[in-house]
């Protein structure tokens, strides 16, 4: 359980990540604000609390792994990697520039700290399962965390991976579902309802938990609880708000991938600075 100081520290980190995301979207840049900001607390707790990792030794053999299967949320991961020191924070503003290492979707061959190439949806959970099986073969205890979007759950490969992970008792694999309830073109419930996802993961043989995906304490608690589960993989359904922290974008599918106007950009910078100082 997080104590008050730890919780405050993580909330401050999350605010810094949101500020970084805002800075990465300096007009006229187009970017995935919605899904990046819904993932912020999850990414924060993983990088600044839960995972064993070492920015000075990105290939450290004993590290835990994070795979951003919903690769369009790369901005949240880039911010976390920069705040951890995998690369300079000044790099962030150059995202998507021609020849620069920060791609529109994560590329392990270009960016230090990225563990897998993702962005074509539905593949990250399978890659995570492969890594988890590799560690099991070697008798190692490294854990693998995969962040999946709720829209991404429409990809059939997710369920292939879900079935296989349960069959192979991959208890070193944790899937976190960023349930922001919006896909690129609108609410999932209206576009093509994915139904009762909780029961679906349970039926596939996973241990399922549900948390407030913006409550760092709840996320940390769930991730710690996941360590106690044996013989089966864990799915944490994190209820989130797309665009969280940016009132003009909250709950709006239009900000799945968009440019901010000058006013929105200033508001984003101001609000995130206030969040950093407020804690």
């Amino acid at each position: 359980m997080l104590d008050v100081a730890e919780e405050k520290h993580l909330r401050r980190k999350a605010a810094q990540l949101r500020r970084d995301i805002a800075e990465m979207l300096e007009p006229p840049k187009v970017g995935h604000l919605g899904g990046s900001s819904s993932s912020v607390e999850i990414v924060t707790v993983l990088y600044f609390y839960k995972m064993r990792h070492n920015p000075k030794e990105p290939q450290w053999a004993e590290r835990d792994h994070f795979i951003m299967s919903k690769g369009h949320s790369a901005l949240a991961q880039y911010a976390a990697l920069a705040e951890c020191g995998y690369f300079p924070r000044q790099d962030l503003r150059h995202n998507k520039e021609l020849g620069f290492h920060l791609q529109g979707h994560p590329d392990m061959r270009k960016t230090v700290g990225i563990e897998a190439n993702t962005g074509s949806l539905g593949q990250g959970l399978s890659v995570g399962l492969g890594l988890a099986l590799s560690h099991k073969l070697d008798g190692q205890s490294n854990k693998v965390y995969v962040l999946v979007g709720d829209g991404e759950l429409a990809e059939g490969q997710i369920w292939e991976a879900a079935m296989a992970a349960a069959a192979y008792k991959a208890d070193n694999l944790v899937a976190i579902i960023d349930r922001n309830r919006l896909q690129a073109t609108g609410p999932i419930s209206e576009r093509m309802d994915s139904g009762d996802i909780q029961s679906k993961w349970q039926a596939f043989g996973w241990e399922v938990m549900e948390v407030d995906g913006h409550d760092v304490k709840a996320i940390a608690y769930a991730l710690d609880e996941a360590d106690k589960v044996s013989e089966r993989p864990v799915a944490i359904i994190a209820n989130t708000i797309k665009g969280k922290g940016f009132p003009f974008a909250e709950g709006k599918a239009a900000f799945h991938n968009a440019a901010l106007n000058a006013e929105q950009y200033q508001e984003a910078l101001l609000l995130t600075e206030q969040m950093i100082e407020g804690d």
């Binding site: 897998a116 593949q123 399978s126 399962l129 492969g130 890594l131 099986l133 490969q157 292939e160």
Partner: peptide, 15 residues
Amino acid sequence: AEQNMVSVAVGLALG
């Protein structure tokens, strides 16, 4: 499940 198989292989290679 060929798609999952290939991506799992990618993960094994990363390991």
